[in-house]
């Protein structure tokens, strides 16, 4: 019960961070909040007879989220090294 509410709160805060942050790393941190909250909720929903399945799915979620974060950070650092830009408004065009 208490975990579900906490996770819902963390997820909503993650959405808020994605909406209001201007620095791209802040947006990525918001996405991390959502993924972490979802993983805990997955385990809450899967406790009981599906516990092993929920744990293994949580493990795969962990892998996917880590890959997402690493690619995202590589993009941020490369974009900054190329154009010295790290804020979301400064990326008007995707090409080039």
């Amino acid at each position: 019960m208490i975990l579900t509410v906490a996770c819902a709160g963390a997820f909503a805060l993650g959405v808020y961070a994605v909406l209001v942050r201007r620095e791209i790393i802040g947006i990525l941190a918001g996405a991390e909040l959502m993924l972490g909250a979802a993983a805990v909720q997955l385990l809450v929903a899967g406790s009981g007879e599906f516990a092993a399945g929920a744990s293994s799915f949580g493990l795969i979620l962990l892998v996917v989220a880590a890959a997402e974060a690493v690619v995202g950070l590589a993009l941020i650092v490369t974009a900054y090294r190329r154009a010295k830009r790290s804020r979301i408004e400064e990326f008007g065009e995707v090409s080039g």
Binding site: T4, V5, C7, A8, G9, F11, A12, V15, L19, V44
Partner: peptide
């Protein structure tokens, strides 16, 4: 938006 999402999630998601 975030507050609305929180309320919906806290109500809808399954609890132990």
């Amino acid at each position: 938006v975030a507050l609305g999402l929180f309320v919906v999630l806290a109500i809808v998601t399954p609890k132990r």
